[in-house]
Write a protein that binds this DNA or RNA. Structure first.
Length: 273
DNA sequence: CGGCAAACCTGCGAGC
DNA sequence: TGCTCGCAGGTTTGCC
């Protein structure tokens, strides 16, 4: 479900709630998500205190006091919910329940089960295959026009597809790829190499759309909710995503949709070239 | 290696 | 009301 702004919103929501919490026990309500749970997962986290939550790409990393790290991805439909106490009955698709010693619980809920949750020692993370081939973080200094230009120049696939490739830049999913291309006035079907000369604008647009979305608490489509249970607000700010047939906000054109690599893509044919 | 489709799942809204 | 169909924000895999 979520793209980078939603994952960052979850991280920011969880951080003050569960930093310092001690895990009394962990309940796995099935044996796998997208990947199997780590063997002895529950036993290995028992008694550990959560010392912090980091984010890399769309992964959340729960750092534990004894040097282990829970690596989690929300996939398309994953959510973390904090229960005020452990009393509520687990609902359908509540797959992991982390009971804290203070009586609260952190629940991972994921109907489509495209997400994952695995346990690693912090020393293993440098070689973790899930993280190994990730490209630069779009909001950090390593994501520069020069870096992007070099990558785009070599690729003949449509620019939108390439922007969604986590090896190129992480965190840009289907929604924000469309939005960033609109901001830069680039047609989504243009080849990446032909768009390479606009890398400076693209870097700016990607940063802007992600930053604005984070500031709005993420976007709420079907089922994204902040940890608080509130929806985000950024969906009200979409300029092209989901607006097929509506007026372009920048020119007299009408937003159209096209499928690229199986994903709906939205653009204005008049002002995106 | 690059590009593409399919795969993993369930839920929901649209349309009949 | 109830059915079927298509589509949904991600990532990996395997095929050509």
């Amino acid at each position: 479900m979520p793209e980078l702004p939603e994952v960052e919103t979850v991280r920011r929501g969880l951080e003050p709630l569960i930093t310092g919490a001690t895990i009394e026990r962990l309940t796995l309500r099935r044996k796998n998500l997208r990947v199997p749970f780590t063997p002895d997962f529950a036993k290995r986290v028992q008694g550990a205190t959560i010392s912090g939550i980091k984010r890399r790409a769309k992964y959340l990393l729960f750092e534990l006091s004894h040097g282990e790290v829970i690596l989690s991805h929300l996939g398309m439909s994953g959510r973390f919910i904090v229960w005020p106490d452990s009393l509520p009955q687990a609902a359908k698709h509540d797959h992991v329940i982390m009971h804290f010693t203070d009586g609260r619980a952190l629940v991972y809920h994921d109907p489509r089960r495209f997400g994952l949750m695995v346990l690693r020692h912090e020393d293993e993370l440098a070689h973790e295959p899930l993280l190994a081939s990730l490209g630069p973080e779009p909001l950090e200094p390593g994501f520069t026009a020069a870096v992007l230009k070099a990558t785009l120049g070599k690729k003949t696939a449509p620019i939108k597809q390439v922007l969604m490739d986590p090896q190129v830049v992480v965190g840009v999913g289907n929604i924000y790829a469309s939005e960033a291309l609109f901001l830069s006035a680039i047609h989504p079907q243009r080849t990446a190499s032909s768009a390479a000369k606009h890398s400076e604008s693209l870097v700016r647009s990607i940063r802007q759309v992600l930053t604005d979305a984070i500031a709005s608490g993420g976007s709420s489509l079907r089922d994204f909710l902040q940890v608080s249970g509130e929806g985000g607000y950024f969906q009200h700010a979409f300029k092209v995503y989901g607006r097929a047939g509506k007026a372009c906000v920048r020119c007299p054109g009408t937003i159209e949709t096209v499928r690229l690599a199986g994903r709906s893509s939205f653009y204005c044919p008049k002002c995106q070239k």
